[in-house]
């Protein structure tokens, strides 16, 4: 008596599921049922999670935030219809690569700022005007926003910027010379400022 295995499929050949997954995501995207396309982009400041809705870039998250936690948060804040492997994140991934290589000074992707509200959103909308390689103080930004006393609130707005790196809250620093807090950690903030200074100084290409 020899045990005979009914030849039910056991597991798919290597890579087949990845292939099917990609085809499925493309169909979901075309069918309008993919609410958030996500991808992980590696960078000198660690893996960045990027999330793109049908309106634009909605979230950039640092590794220190815990990508799984951020995804779960997006699922409850926006929609659980979240998928990887969509081409929707490709343009941003490419631009991030160029930025970190010192070959790009501003990003050209649509933004979806639904995760920033009220005054914080106003500040986030002002940030792209702070030029590459330059800095402003929290106080200066508060004055630009028309609320010179709201220095602390500007700090909070920068700290909760849903799309860091792309919207350059890292260019907002303390007036005393300290670089201030950063969602991705002060080391990451310093690295971004150094990168931009070096690129402008011609150190990188």
């Amino acid at each position: 008596m020899r045990p005979t295995r009914l030849p039910f499929p056991d597991r798919p050949p290597t890579d087949q599921l990845a292939h099917l997954h990609r085809l499925f995501v493309a169909r979901a995207d075309a069918g309008g049922v993919l609410d958030i396309a996500v991808a992980t982009v590696d960078s000198p400041i660690g893996d960045l999670l990027v999330a793109v809705t049908d309106l634009g870039l909605v979230r950039v998250a640092f590794g220190t935030e815990g990508h799984d936690a951020v995804l779960t948060e997006l699922a409850s804040q926006i929609s659980p219809r979240i998928l990887r492997r969509s081409g929707r994140t490709d343009p941003l991934a490419r631009q991030l690569d160029e930025y970190f290589a010192g070959r790009r000074r501003h990003f050209e992707v649509p933004l979806d700022l639904r995760l920033a509200h009220g005054f914080r959103r106003r500040i986030v909308e002002l940030l792209p005007a702070v030029g590459y390689g330059t800095t402003v103080s929290y106080g200066e930004l508060a004055a630009t926003a028309g609320s010179p006393a709201a220095v602390r609130a500007v700090g909070t707005a920068c700290a909760t910027n849903p799309v860091p790196v792309v919207v350059p809250c890292h260019r907002v620093v303390r007036s005393g010379g300290g670089i201030g807090q950063y969602r991705g950690g002060t080391a990451a903030k310093q690295a971004l400022l150094d990168l931009e200074a070096a690129t402008l100084g011609g150190v990188i290409r």
């Binding site: 039910f8 499929p9 056991d10 597991r11 798919p12 087949q16 599921l17 099917l20 997954h21 499925f24 996500v38 995804l71 779960t72 997006l74 699922a75 409850s76 659980p80 219809r81 979240i82 998928l83 990887r84």
Partner: peptide, 22 residues
Amino acid sequence: MTPFDDIVRQHGEMVWRVCHSL
């Protein structure tokens, strides 16, 4: 709620088996 991508990752193989059995 679990992002749907995790659902695909966790259950993709099971769905594959069902489809290929029939």
